[in-house]
Design a protein around this nucleic acid. Sequence first.
DNA 1: GCCAACGTTGGC
DNA 2: GCCAACGTTGGC
Length: 145
Amino acid sequence: MAYWLVKSEPDVYSIDQLKKDKRTCWDGVRNYQARNLLRDSMKKGDIVLFYHSNCAEPGVTGIAKVVREGYPDNTNYKGKGNPDPANPTWFMVDIAFQRKLKRVITLAEIKAEGRLRDMQLVQRGNRLSVMPVSAAEYELLIGME
DNA sequence: GCCAACGTTGGC
DNA sequence: GCCAACGTTGGC
């Protein structure tokens, strides 16, 4: 089993929305590196840290689980369907709500924790919206809750 | 709203 | 295949 972190702008899709929906398809990812992870690496049962970006208090806000492995995301090709559905470019997974953290583990705290300095999240110029997290990093982070 | 960092696009 | 222009992300 692996661990992941996904970013979402709370104005667009928040942890509270996921809690309400119970599960959602993680669509709209339009980055090839992230696409490869969605398509090839994320497995059913994997744990996903839910991160709020581009907001007043960026940080990890909850935990979700992969409930459906990568399948074609044929929508939203600039507003239209995939011109070639047999050969999809973009993929998505389904994730289900697990729980909200008791509090937000903020980006500032993560940066301040030296043992988390290798997390992709805090690497320079990181813009990936889906990224792997090691088991050790996951445990440490959850321990800060 | 600013700006740095990065990906993508397109001319050549 | 190079590289400048442009668009997007995301912290601050």
